[in-house]
Design a binder for these strands. Structure first.
Lengths: 307, 307
DNA sequence: TAGGATGGATCAGAAAAAATCATCCTTGGT
DNA sequence: ACCAAGGATGATTTTTTCTGATCCATCCTA
């Protein structure tokens, strides 16, 4: 059975709910005549009388009484669905797993405490530089190449450099006698199971392309890879920003101090549509992100390479 | 929040469900361009992008994905509601309580057994001659004055006369020494709690208007009043058709044989819109009603007054 | 018991919405 | 490189919808 004319349904629903055409016409901002016509159209489509035309006004027939609740409910579902989709009262933020878990998430409670009225909806997942267009999320935090061409209405603000540097536990450094990059041959080179390019980037930069990566252990994300490295499992291609704490504590060390390079993925960045600056809550959040970014970035840039 | 344009919603729902405009256009019997426009309209209304325009076809955004299920559900609710209201596969019959319980209902199983595929939905309630117009019910069985003016498309077929005749138990007849209508003074005149006119009609016909009805016991319906009379509680204004069995069994008797008159309510009749004759199931039912009506009516008309 | 008020139905014309047709654009596949 | 697929778009036409005026029946009130 084909769907009845929707506008006629809406007119009937309003008329039935109000028990008359005049109030319905008022609600829908049209004239009585329009409602009258709609109801007639609907009755003809259904082949059923919905209103009994009484002396004074109209009265629902049984069919009309049966139909009304279904329509009221349907329109309510539509309205709520639309409202939910339209709702921009919460900031939708997406951030890849390692960055989220190792940097953003630990500080987020601080922001939430300071601004309890700003609702942040954090999605911890990959979102790729290329994909962000501000439709699915308001703010994307992740790797991005600020120099990449991008629609002019998308703003990109750097958070911290993505500095590739091999890392392993002090124990492994000793036991495997890793002194020069050549010593990596035969060592377990840990990597993420993600089409990233951290090892390839570094190996290419230092012309070590002959090293075989396929032998290394694979972990579903960078965070787990780091934990494996801490336990002395192997050598990871770390990052000064994300592994800062481990380097400071000395539970991870750099076998080749100074031998670092930037990732081809670009810096860690915050991306958002320029229009977002009209939203005071968003501005609060962006300012705060910049603040903690500057703080943590500073720590990375000023500290000497950890050995 | 005001409801979005409904036709645009339908277009979007189809497009989202099919994952493309072409199939949606096909489903709604319009061109791609129409769907494209509708989606755009909806996006503008909501202020939200619903489809990400990809190289090949479109892809739902998060908002679109969120919206789709609500719409699909809403349209399903509407469709089901409309289908239910449109469904004319069951015959809706209404019949007042006493007539239903004492005449129609006892025979109905016989019809249902003979025609198991004809679904009868019996509502046992008052429906008044005046009210019947074929919208709420297909067939109304009850008191009707065949001579009353009525829309020409409503058929009225007589079932049996509504013949008013006082009745009581043989015991009461003796103990209260009821011989002439004048003996009713001071007797418990049982009546229904319904704006009927059985006693008034009879009293007026035999010029006994001076009898006081207010003293008599009141019962919520005629059936219960009859039971009370059988128990010797008082005198009811009975009816030859509905009390036939009691008269035959002798558990009710007529104090004044021959003193009967027709009710001002008219005969028991079957009312239905002429168009119902296009429905074979309805014709089966109407024929059957006529059949049992003739049978039971005959018994009333040919039998001598029960004394 | 007339006259005004209420509430719906209806008609012709006006306005708005929707659909179409033709064409354009981007992109992916061969 | 070219073609096909799939959507976007502009101008135009068709369809739908709304309006404003008027009609009609009934109820209410004086």
């Amino acid at each position: 059975m084909r769907l009845p004319p929707l506008n006629a349904l809406r007119a009937f629903e309003a008329a039935a709910r109000h028990g008359g055409y005049i109030d319905a016409a008022d609600e829908l901002h049209v004239t009585r005549g329009a409602i009258s016509r709609h109801v007639k159209t609907l009755e003809e489509h259904l082949g059923v009388t919905l209103f009994r035309r009484a002396s004074r006004g109209v009265e629902l027939t049984r069919a009309g009484r049966d139909l009304l609740p279904a329509l009221t409910k349907a329109f309510k579902v539509i309205e709520e669905g639309a409202a939910r989709v339209t709702d921009r009262s919460e900031l939708r933020v997406i951030c890849p797993p390692a960055l989220s878990v190792r940097w953003l998430l630990p500080s987020l409670p601080e922001f939430r405490a300071a601004h309890p009225d700003v609702r942040i909806k954090l999605t911890t997942d990959f979102h790729g530089d290329h994909a962000f267009d501000g439709t699915d999320y308001d703010i994307s935090i992740g790797c991005a190449n600020p120099s990449n061409q991008r629609p002019s209405d998308i703003r990109v603000e750097p958070v911290a450099p993505y500095t590739l540097v091999p890392a392993c536990s002090p124990g492994l450094l000793e036991s495997a006698r890793i002194r020069t990059p050549e010593d990596l041959v035969g060592v377990n080179l840990i990597r993420e199971d993600y089409p990233g390019s951290d090892w390839p980037d570094w190996l290419k930069h230092f012309r070590m392309d002959h090293l075989d990566l396929e032998q290394g252990d694979v972990f579903p994300n960078f965070d787990l890879a780091i934990r494996a490295a801490i336990m002395g499992t192997g050598v990871i291609m770390g990052d000064l920003f994300l592994c800062r704490e481990e380097f400071e504590k000395g539970i991870l060390v750099q076998p080749f101090p100074g031998m670092s390079c930037e990732s081809s993925w670009g810096w860690y960045c915050v991306l958002y549509p320029a229009a977002l600056l009209d939203n005071p809550s968003a501005v609060l959040f962006l300012d705060w992100v910049n603040e903690i970014a500057a703080r943590d970035r500073q720590a990375v840039l000023t500290n000497p390479p950890y050995a």
